[in-house]
């Protein structure tokens, strides 16, 4: 269930810095970033950094977590719409699963997203936390 460190490395721009692609013709922003706009075929784009706050659109609760996430279970996995309208999925952390609600405001925080046993590589990225300030 672990992610290759090379794959994580390739995804640093999105995982570490929330870089998305915004296409010139449609004005649409895609996250994860794409090279081609699937609607228009446009390849002219700019890299934009997504806002770090939004609201939960939908979520599920993981109660029987895969091995390395066991220490955090139960936890929420949510799709949130950020303030620019972009949607993305992430784990909800620092939050009791009973408190997760559709419409709940969240903020994106940099967290460890994968811990490969005692010896493996550590992977970092974004998670949602309740927006309390």
């Amino acid at each position: 269930m672990t992610m290759f460190s090379s794959r994580n490395w390739r995804e640093y721009p999105q995982r570490y810095r929330l870089e998305a692609s915004k296409f010139k013709k449609s004005g649409k922003t895609y996250f994860p970033p794409r090279d081609v706009d699937p609607e228009t075929g446009d390849t002219e784009k700019e890299t934009v950094i997504l806002p770090d706050t939004g609201k939960i659109i939908t979520y599920t609760v993981i109660r029987v977590a895969p091995g390395q996430w066991g220490d955090m279970s139960p936890y929420g996995l949510a799709v949130a719409e950020l303030t620019d309208g972009t949607r993305l999925m992430a784990q909800v952390t620092d939050c009791d699963v009973e408190e997760i609600k559709i419409g709940m405001e969240v903020r994106i925080e940099f967290r460890r997203i994968q811990t490969e046993s005692h010896e493996g590589v550590l992977s970092y990225g974004y998670k949602f936390v309740p927006k309390w300030y």
Binding site: M72, Q91, T93, E109, F110, R111, T115, L122, Y124
Partner: peptide, 16 residues
């Protein structure tokens, strides 16, 4: 610190 927080994640948020 919860399991998904370490020196690196704290450092990133403080730097931001």
């Amino acid at each position: 610190p919860p399991p998904d927080m370490d020196t690196i994640t704290l450092a990133v948020e403080a730097a931001r």
